[in-house]
Design a protein around this nucleic acid. Structure first.
Lengths: 345, 345
DNA sequence: GTGAAAGCGCTAACAA
DNA sequence: TTGTTAGCGCTTTCAC
């Protein structure tokens, strides 16, 4: 019996008689043949049947951030719909080993939130397969899915300005691949390799400058790791040095939750003594009443998957901008006022 | 120039002069050669550089359950350490399409919590690659990682018995591939295709029978989907029919959290009016003070990954039993008592 | 409905 | 140090 017949038995049942097919499969089982080798088939058909996901955030933090989990879930859902696997590429912030990217047998990549100078990203760009980037970085000619960070951040800023705050502080996620758990000088802000963070800081700078605040005096504290505890320690560092601050703007809900914990530790009431805002709109933040920008993270992941899987015969790169919504909660209010002496009648 | 030299330039830098290597890579770039094709390489080397994960729980629920996320994270960590990818096989409870399993280019599979009659599982077992099963099912000759469910459940049962409860109810996860959001007759309990659930129910039956409770009178409610809301509705269904119940034993923390929500909705105080227990020891449950069995989910995932990745030249199958710990919280207490008339002096 | 032959792109022996 | 050769296991024309 020829190889063709066997191959047909597995892949195109309509090309041979049911009887013969049955016999082939039966014989295969008897001989312990496990069915066509997926790798050899992929080589031949030029289809790996999998999508690669490049994510350079530390996995432990990624899985603890509902925003990231939402993206992952949406992407996995899109893959499931299409019947293709989702291949998580092993890559962590410190790791310089790019081989895993080269070794991944995938039909395309989704890149989620990596710095523009990441070597893994460079390796992905070298692979001759379609790529979709979620959030960051922005690369000319590459499909992208993400919110309008500048617009959303501007909304937050204007909300805070309109409440009357002029003494604000900012807590942001890491701006580059090198750790800097400290205040951020202006040049580091403007040269940040994490596009999203840079855009958000720029939007804040613009909005507050317009409101008459000298941005160079606004303290910005950065944290490399993305955990609630890091948010708390960042808030501590900022408030210790700048106790006059009346509002803490955080570039993520995770950091904001940490800031709220620190506020409570110091006996500061939110929002009476301190306004705190976040970004993402994760469930825990909503439960805490956090004022934040909600973005549809599940849709983000799904959109990325669909874009990639449907990118076969497309010419122009596609940019999908997700809707965001400012959700004012109970953590933002007017700044505390210094008691005025009362000159009564 | 020969193919060997090019191949060496990429894979064994030490086999040629740095100068030549540089020239090869330079030329490759100029010619737009993207580097060795990973699929072809895998075919040749017989190494896919990836581990497959089979998970037939609905992804949305899986990602919402911290216990499942913990396992996933641990596994991903182990893969990262080894520099291999983690390939999520597209499979959901309803889906009968097993092709994705055959199509996955992986060096081995981790199977996480699937029923013993799942067709995807059967497909995995046919593949000539090593397999590790996490939690369930138990299959002769296959590596397994999981807790001692019987022992852990017995501990919980004895805790509740010793508090004095004799009127108990049980909330459990799905017992088979067909949906049954309802009470569970005895034969369905004993023939459950989800091994873990079956073992836990059996352990409860044994422990309560020993305490003089007729197990056939104990109401058990099943839910197909694993969400807090389903836990709440299951508790409602059970308490509506059996208001005399003083303790609700849940086979997962997620269900238990739902049960607590329902208790509060009905105005029942926990534990004064109703004792609630869970299983898993997820963070949210601990914050809620839930009495539960803690299991190290991250370690579970890690252990599975290491076992699989190191299973090369092992002869006997390996079983890793994880330590669990009964954590008595503030949701379990003595049963409510009927007010006794007071015959004073 | 079935079989023969070509070749996907690569790596590993081995030879030079 | 470099080149030659032989497949890895499969699918796909194409002829029968």
């Amino acid at each position: 019996m020829s190889r063709t017949t066997v191959s047909n038995a597995y892949n195109r049942p309509d090309q041979l008689s049911p009887e013969l097919r049955r016999r082939v499969l039966e014989t295969a089982r008897r001989l312990g043949y496990p069915g066509p080798d997926p790798v050899a088939r992929s080589l031949r058909t030029r289809k790996a049947g999998a999508v690669g996901l490049l994510l350079t955030e530390n996995l432990s933090y990624a899985f603890r951030d509902p925003a990231a989990v939402g993206v992952l879930e949406g992407l996995a859902l899109a893959c499931e719909d299409a019947g293709v696997g989702l291949h998580l590429v092993p890559a962590s912030p410190g790791r310089e080993d790019v081989a895993a990217v080269h070794r991944a047998g995938v039909d395309g990549f989704v890149v989620y939130s990596v710095p523009d100078d990441d070597p893994h990203l460079a390796a992905v760009m070298q692979r001759p397969v379609p790529t979709v980037i979620v959030d960051q970085p922005r690369i000319e000619g590459i499909d992208r899915v993400g919110p309008d960070d500048a617009a959303a951040t501007t909304e937050i800023a204007q909300h805070i300005v309109s409440l009357g705050h002029r003494q604000v502080g900012v807590l942001c996620m890491r701006l580059a691949r090198e750790r800097n758990d400290d205040f951020v000088p202006p040049e580091r802000q403007s040269s940040a390799h994490f596009h999203v963070q840079r855009i958000r800081l720029e939007a804040l700078a613009t909005a507050f400058s317009a409101a008459g605040v000298d941005w160079s005096t606004v303290p910005v504290v950065e944290r490399f790791d993305h955990t609630v505890d890091d948010g708390a320690s960042a808030a501590r560092q900022l408030l210790d040095a700048h106790p006059q601050v009346t509002a803490l703007i955080c570039t993520s809900d995770i950091l904001a939750l940490g800031a709220m914990a620190e506020a409570s530790r110091r006996g500061l009431r939110v929002p009476a003594d301190l306004t705190v805002t976040g970004f993402d709109g994760i469930a825990e933040a909503e439960r805490a009443g956090l004022t934040t920008v909600h973005q549809p993270v599940l849709e983000k992941g799904k959109a990325a998957g669909k874009l990639l899987l449907g990118s076969a015969d497309r010419l122009a790169p596609k940019i999908i901008t997700l809707k965001t919504e400012l959700r004012v909660g109970s953590t933002s209010g007017p700044p505390r006022t210094i008691e005025q002496p009362w000159f009564g009648p």
